[in-house]
Amino acid sequence: MFRGLFYLLIFPGLAFQVVCGLIFEWIDRKLLARFQRRIGPPWYQPVADLIKLFSKEDLVPLGSYDLVEVLLPLISLSAVLTAGLYIPIARFTPFSFEGDLIVIQFLMSVPTLAYYLAGIASVGIYSILGGGRSLLQYFSYEVPLLITISGPAVMAGSWSVAEISRSQLTMGPFIIFQPLGFILAVVGLIGKLKRDPLDIPSASSEVVGGSLTEFSGAKLGFWYLVMNVQAVVGIFLLVNLYMGWSNLTFPFAAILVFLVEFLLMVLILSTTSAVFARLRIDQLAGLGWRILVPLALTQLGFVILMGV
């Protein structure tokens, strides 16, 4: 009983994921700042921002569904936290079962749908535009991402993330066999996280704040938390699927390798957001369906052929 609570609330549950999310945000912002010749924020900045948002007045615009607006960020947060529970952190996995990759994929899609609903539930015109864009973007990146992520599963012969991760100890990390798949998965992850260059639903110069334009106070704070935790969970997932080095038997080495892989992923995400310009929505749809989907299918076919 207490063990279960510990898993849920401390590690690898709520506290661990939130702290990782804040650390991720700080590293990301600091890296971006250094890329842009700035000093960047101090280490406590993400916490300070969160405290500020939580202590601010919560405004509910007239005509919007306030219960829905409160529930949406909370549902998204619990969805991504639950997804995080099934992902092994440096070999440690309390709740793994066969098929959890599908569950994780489903749970990770919840914030995007909640984001869309948040836009529709608000009264602002920018929110509606941002919500519509987020759904369009979802259809562009999600299909290639799903096809790509089944690559490691097919290769390992299992739909459990822990099993896929473990099998790489004997077979070798899948990033070596599926480099294309890894790149596609990163693109899909960027799309999922709505990060630059795929921040189309929240592009400030076009739709102000996207779906979150009308959100304020603690609700907005929860949304930011969702984004960060989602980023961390997504990174953990990719690390487990493609870089299975962290399954070493010696625990200390496993943690170290896992940490290095995590930082490498943050570096990749920050660099892409610094170097690429935002795509237009039609360019993204073209990219998703004309380039990413065929590439993902090619990769998957290649994996299947290798297995035969």
Partner: peptide, 12 residues
């Protein structure tokens, strides 16, 4: 460049 999402060019 900031408007097209290239904040790095903006800063540089």
């Amino acid at each position: 460049s900031k408007h097209v999402g290239l904040e790095t060019v903006f800063m540089h």
